[in-house]
Amino acid sequence: MLKPGDVAPSFDLPCAFDGQISHLALAGLRSEMVVLFFYPRDFSFICPTEVVGFHKAQPAFKAEHTSIVGVSVDDPETHRKWAAELGGLSYPLLSDAEGRVAKLYGVYDDVEKVAMRATFMLDNKRRIAYAVASAINVGRSVSETLRVVRAIRSGRLCPADWQPGQPTIDTDQKY
């Protein structure tokens, strides 16, 4: 699995967004940061809460100049149906049918032939700023993802559980 500081591998994959099927490349994302989250499958009883959670929090991520991109091994048509089933999503779902991108990021489960539940935050230079993977049965915290995005964008040393508006630590201080 890639770690903070690594260059994020580029990708150009079919995707479903806004009821349409198209292509999306990492190079085409102009936002300051990118939240790239991998999940195992569409039409699953484990994933919908976080997929919907990212959708609901999308305005807050947008305010932080951050794009959200979901990736799984499902084909784009399945993504399109899945997004419709969930009532529509405000961010694209990428189809990594052979798991090529998941393998590049080191989050491909060879046994199940799906991507693991993993989140990467890419900074404005498209380097990994944050990486986390969790067990298949544990949904991610969207609010924690947003908190980390805000912390990274603050450019300051942020103490544990830091929230916007709370004091940061000056770089010349010991912590």
């Binding site: 499958r41 569409d42 039409f43 699953s44 009883f45 484990i46 499902d74 149906k81 089933e85 049965n137």
Partner: peptide, 23 residues
């Protein structure tokens, strides 16, 4: 519950139902 939901979904999918229909 998601464990049997996922297993049942997989079984139905294996028996020929599309994943979305099985879901």
């Amino acid at each position: 519950p998601y464990i049997i939901q996922e297993s049942l979904l997989h079984e139905l999918n294996q028996e020929g139902l599309d994943r979305d229909a099985a879901y």
